[in-house]
Design a protein around this nucleic acid. Structure first.
Lengths: 161, 161
DNA sequence: AGACATTCGTTGAGACCTGAAGCATTTGCC
DNA sequence: GGCAAATGCTTCAGGTCTCAACGAATGTCT
């Protein structure tokens, strides 16, 4: 009796998830490549570095490396290297805690703070520019609906099954 | 006279693009990390490899490396390495053209074809699973609206200004 | 034909990224 | 107190990624 429904289900909505996933991937890749390129040529920075600095910018007292790792969704081992390079050119400062000598806290240097502000301003301009042809209402809805996708994905990670 | 408009503009809709971009980045990162992890544990493959194989799967006669590069949005130099590794374990075959000895064509081996089919089936299942909590109508709209974002970004890349 | 430019792929340096193993420090439990 | 477990970061091997420089093959122009 609902053969029609089954049939239309198998045709129209088929692979909708897959298509969306591929488009998500392509769109993000396109935009991040552009941003990466501009960060590199105009500031000599990389996207992961920018991401890390953005976290530190809003935490004046700095963050432990583990906290940085989870906020930027970057592995621990990777944070070590990122922090090392950023410390080397004086953008951030790394220091061990006295209370607990296992933890290391990273925070922006003064130089790093002004450096980041310049980048952040440009970064926001680039993003706005790239999305210029999309209506504000659409942007707003996308934000909400993408939130649903993220929540759904989060609930279906393989370690919680 | 339209101070209100200016004010609300500065509050409500402000940084809408930036927020969307960050969410786009976070969602994609979350999902691709999960897919990466599963590809690795269940098939010993990586996401870029999967992406490359997917392109070859639908082109029985194979593709030139440059074509692969642009379709996967991966640099030339990177394609060389990817193809090398995939050829080493017999998934794909690489051969020079007689007509034009500069070009190299890569295509799936028989083994690679069945190998990829297994992966593709699993990959689609994972994606579907992660998006399970999102209504089909929302998925459909997201696909269309994300398309707008992609188009807009494409039109505002820095080399065409 | 000879010189020059273009195209295609490879190579190399440097950064990013992951998972797993390693090491030090703290904590918990007896 | 003492020893095992947990925690926080680092190190390592291998793959990905980018750009820039290179080399070989082909096209073009005079």
């Amino acid at each position: 009796m609902d053969l029609e429904l089954v049939a239309s289900d198998a045709q129209e909505g088929k692979k909708q998830e897959l298509k969306l996933w591929l488009r998500l991937l392509a769109t993000t890749k396109l935009m991040s490549q552009e941003i990466r390129r501009r960060l590199r040529t105009e500031f000599g920075a990389t996207l992961p570095q920018f991401d890390l600095l953005a976290q530190l910018y809003r935490e004046k007292d700095g963050l432990r490396l583990g906290e940085l790792s989870s906020r930027t969704m970057v592995t621990n081992g990777n944070v070590t290297g990122l922090v090392e390079r950023l410390e080397a050119d004086g953008t951030i400062i790394r220091e061990r805690l006295e209370d607990d000598k296992r933890v290391t806290v990273a925070r922006l240097s003064e130089k790093g703070r002004t450096y980041f502000e310049g980048m952040a301003e440009a970064h926001e301009r680039w993003v706005k520019e790239m999305m210029a042809d999309v209506e504000p209402a659409v942007l707003k809805r996308l934000l909400a609906e993408l939130g649903q996708v993220k929540e759904s994905a989060q609930r279906h990670l393989s370690d919680d099954e």
